[in-house]
């Protein structure tokens, strides 16, 4: 698979996780591509931690709702509210997150492990961007789905145990990469789907954690 196709492939598979009316928070980068691939008839309520419940498409300069001083997203880009959406303050908004009112959050990882622990907010001594809303989302969303490239520069990101400081423990339900889909249960990782472009041995070599293979293993392409 070409490098440029990988993100779209992962986003497309993530889109299958969603059903009509789901409240979804999308992390920056790859997750924001997911709405492009939604099946017909599936409309989401996009939750934005900056203060939108029901975010809309990104407005362009000249659009009536282009308002870079008053309606932005958590990356600082211009945002919009969808028809039927609303604005919300941060305390109420994070009450919704912690309270389990968000069906799913999709986010990337620096490391994720076999116990469902996630590290994605700090590399000590190097980068200190901060956790923003990630810790709240991982703890509070009903489903926490990691979507990312399987390795970083050839190094596994899926580990037996995270080495970096955690974002949250025992929070990840599912990991979706260009190679496979892992579900996380009490016993660890179980591969439920794989991309037939890769062999099981290649997936094992790229994964630094033990995993089981589901009896009902399917192709990611269907």
């Amino acid at each position: 698979m070409e490098k440029s196709e990988i993100k779209a492939f992962i986003a497309k598979r993530c889109a299958k996780e969603l059903k009509n009316g789901d409240v979804v928070n999308l992390g920056i980068g790859l997750p924001t591509m997911i709405p492009t691939y939604l099946p017909e008839g599936v409309e989401l309520i996009i939750h934005a931690e900056l203060g939108i419940v029901g975010a809309g498409a990104t407005p362009q300069p000249g659009d009536a709702n282009y308002d870079p001083y008053h309606v932005i997203d958590a990356g600082g880009g211009v945002a919009s509210v969808a028809y039927g959406g609303g604005f919300i303050d941060s305390a109420t908004n994070f009450g919704l997150i912690r309270g389990g009112h968000v069906d799913a959050c999709f986010l990337g990882a620096l490391e994720v492990d076999a116990q469902g622990n996630l590290a994605n907010w700090i590399i000590p001594g190097k980068k200190m961007p901060g956790m923003g809303g990630a810790m709240d989302l991982c703890v509070g969303a009903k489903n926490c789905i990691v979507c990312m490239e399987h390795t970083a520069k050839g190094n596994p990101k899926i580990l037996e145990k995270c080495r970096l400081p955690l974002t949250a423990s025992h929070c990840v339900n599912k990991i979706i990469t260009e190679m496979c889909v892992f579900e996380v249960d009490d016993e660890g990782l179980i591969m439920t789907e794989y991309n037939p472009e890769f062999t099981i041995d290649e997936i094992r070599a790229a994964t630094a954690a033990h995993f089981r293979i589901a009896v009902s293993l399917k192709s990611m392409l269907h």
Partner: peptide
């Protein structure tokens, strides 16, 4: 207006 509310109200 819009997303200005954020932390202001608390």
């Amino acid at each position: 207006k819009g997303t200005m509310r954020n932390f202001n109200t608390v």
